[in-house]
Design a protein around this nucleic acid. Sequence first.
DNA 1: CCTCCACCGGAACGTGAGGAGT
DNA 2: ACTCCTCACGTTCCGGTGGAGG
Length: 418
Amino acid sequence: MENTPIADAIKELLESKPIFENRDVLRSTYVPDYLPHRDNEVDALLKILIVALRGDTPSNILIYGKTGTGKTAVTTHVGKEIEKAGEERGILCEVLYNNCGVIDTQYRLLAELARNFGKRIPMTGWPTDQVFAEFKSAIDSKKRVVVIILDEVDKLIKKGDDVLYNLSRINSVLENAKVSLIGISNDLKFTEFLDPRVRSSLGEEELIFPPYNADQLADVLRQRAEMAFRSGVIDDDVISLCAALAARENGDARKALDLLRISAELAEREKVEGVQEMHVRRAQSKIEFDRVAEVIKTLPTQSKLVLYSIMVLDKAPELIRRSGRRIMSTGEVYQIYKRMCDMIDIDVLTQRRITELISELDMLGIVNAIVVNRGRYGVTKEITLDTPQDNVYHVLSDDLRLQSLIDMRPDSIQMQLG
DNA sequence: CCTCCACCGGAACGTGAGGAGT
DNA sequence: ACTCCTCACGTTCCGGTGGAGG
């Protein structure tokens, strides 16, 4: 039988030894049976929720912690264990997980909750109180304890805290069932915007999850790596590097896992036997670029144009360099910006506004801008480009209003500007 | 020691879009 | 359909800054 090139390629790809045994273990949504270095948090949560198994109402809980500190993992993990233990003892205890980042209106949340108990609620159309009433009657039909996990609660209260108010008082109108709430937030200050009554009711207990340090992250990674990879494809140096890099950025376990997974994917694509430190470095810059691209994509046109002005200026030969980077001032950027606005017929904003846009770009980590005093020569921002820019062009030119300009590329624009 | 550059960044205000209430 | 509010985005105005250079 004659093989086509593609058939050969498929054969080769299938036969090459895979690096992964189970890729999904490295996703942050995967919850392992044991969570390293979260024993205290698991304990604390268990102690609060345990009363559910005696048929009592657990206190409402607020959980705080930066992203990737294991809030969601610990909570769902403990939730499952409690449910299981209840089952074994013949106690009806249900733990419902909701991500308010996805379910972000009160209607949807209540509808979702009610559906969990077999109620059929239309996607839209009913008055919210009716949905609430349905939910109430659904849970109250039996003697049970219901624990409602609200992940990313801060997203929910953006549109008013009515749901939280109603849910936190629901126990007073229930005869059989008991409800307790667990709110998860990565914003420590989000309760400030809450109705005081809701705040005190929701925050009966508060848990704060500290970030992982590098050693702890390494343990987390080792545990997952053991399940995720064939033995021998990854050595401890790679894991330590991933852990160290992620620890530098707030001890985010999600980031550490992403880093490890993407490193391995890069290695796999190269058909190399094992993952090397080089892959980790490359994975990091890939992640960084994806982040930047995402940010730039969502920037308003004016900000993009300011960024592009900086990029054009960055190519200018006459600028002073410092450690390889070209330094420019607000005034210089503004001059370029104005002329480019003319070229593509876009409103010219004032320098005051541009200063602000530059500061925003700085906060987003796309450029560096520090305010310096040049004495006799005034105060200005010293701006340097902070992004590997070659990749940025196509992201910028997605904006139709800028397309013609971006396609010209900096060098030829400079010719035109003179 | 004084001056003065070239911009920073706060304050107050204007405008239009979009949402809530009625 | 109507008003009323809020919000994001911009503008104008302007006082403030701090060290290089005289």
